[in-house]
């Protein structure tokens, strides 16, 4: 498990921990409610996930980080973020784009179309 693979929201949560650590989990929940609008169970869920990833730890109700903030962000910039395929959406959901992925060739062709249009317009 790559501890450096976090979603943007999880990063925000991690930032809160780094800014206030060491912090009691109850306190952390209060801050998250104010800044992120989360209820308690949500906060604890995310906390648990990041503990599983090895980024944070929750000992006796006190939350601390296991990886330094600077280390985390420098490692992240070196990482090629893999996009994980989260699973297709159900058929009755109105979505933005098709779930299929394009080949490079297809993507290029479309890009050309757009560029050509820009020139004309």
């Amino acid at each position: 498990m790559n501890e450096f693979e976090l979603g943007a929201i999880q990063e925000r949560f991690a930032d809160i921990v780094w800014a206030h650590e060491p912090i009691a989990s109850g306190e952390l929940a209060k801050i998250c409610e104010k800044e992120l609008g989360w209820k308690r169970p949500t906060t604890y869920t995310v906390l648990r996930k990041l503990c599983e990833k090895g980024l944070l730890q929750n000992k006796d109700g006190i939350v601390t980080s296991l990886v330094l903030r600077e280390k985390f962000y420098s490692a992240k910039s070196r990482q090629i973020i893999e996009e994980s395929y989260q699973g297709s959406l159900p058929a009755f959901i109105a979505a933005f784009t098709a779930q299929n992925k394009l080949t490079n060739a297809e993507a290029d062709a479309i890009q050309k179309m757009i560029d050509a249009a820009r020139k004309e317009g």
Partner: peptide, 25 residues
């Protein structure tokens, strides 16, 4: 935006259009 949102940064072979989807092209 349409293009960017459906692009993957990795090369993956194209999947068939799922249910009721319109291709980006």
């Amino acid at each position: 935006t349409l293009l960017d949102c459906s692009c993957s940064r990795r090369v993956i072979t194209a999947c068939p259009l799922a249910f009721g989807e319109v291709g980006v092209k």
